[in-house]
Amino acid sequence: MDVLNVDYMLGLVPVLLTYLPLTLQLAGVGMVLALILACLFAVVRVLRIPVLNQLTIVFISFFRGTPLLVQLFLFYYGLPQLVSALTVIDGITATIMGLTMHFSAYMAESIRAAIVGVDRSQTEAALSIGMTNGQLMRRIVLPQATRVALPTLMNYFIDMIKATSLAFTLGVTELMGATQKEAAGSFLYFEAFIVAAIMYWIVVEMLSKLQHYLEIRLNKAYSR
C-alpha cells in the first residue's frame, strides 16, 4: 500500500465540485418543500382538523417508520410499475419526493412541539385584538415557534444534505455518484471518498455557521 496519492486527490477536487451544485439543489429543494409540508402537517395536528389529522398521523407514521432508501426505491422503481404514467419520474424527482416526505414527517413533529410550546397567553392576546386563527398563526405563533424549532430543523437539513448521497442508487450522478464513478475508474477508493467526505463536511460546517447566526438574530427579541 502506497501513501496517499495527493496529486490525484487535488485533481479530483474540481471534478467533484461540478457535481456539488446538484447535491445542494436536491437538499435545498427538498428542504423548502419539506418545510412547507411539515408546517401544514403541524398546523393540521395542532388544530386537530378532522380527517386531515388522521391522514397526517398515518403519513407521519409511515414515513418515519420506514427507511429512506426503501421509500426512494418505492418512488423510483415501485410507482411506475403500478401507474405507467409515472415512468416520467426520473431519479432526481424521485429523490426530491423521497427527501421531502421523509423529512417532512420528522420536521412536522418538532414544529408541532414548538407551536404547542408557545405560551397560551400569546394566542389569547392575538384573539383579543380580533385576529383570525390564520393571522395569529402566521404573525405570532409560528415566528415564536421558529425560534424554538430552528436548531432541530437545521439538524434535519444537515441530515438531508448527507441523505442526498442515496440518490446515486437511483442512478443520479450527484457528489456521491460521481465519486463512485471516479473511484471505480482509478481504483483509488480511499482518496476519492475522503475528498467527497471533506466536501460534505465543509458544506455542513458552513450551515452550522449559518445556524449560529440565525439563532442570534431570532434571539434578539428575547434578551434583555
Partner: peptide, 14 residues
C-alpha cells in the same frame, strides 16, 4: 372589545 391581561401578554416577538 379590547382586553388588558393580568400577565400583560405582549407579543414576545414584537
Amino acid at each position: 372589545t379590547a382586553f388588558v391581561f393580568q400577565n400583560y401578554a405582549l407579543f414576545a416577538n414584537k
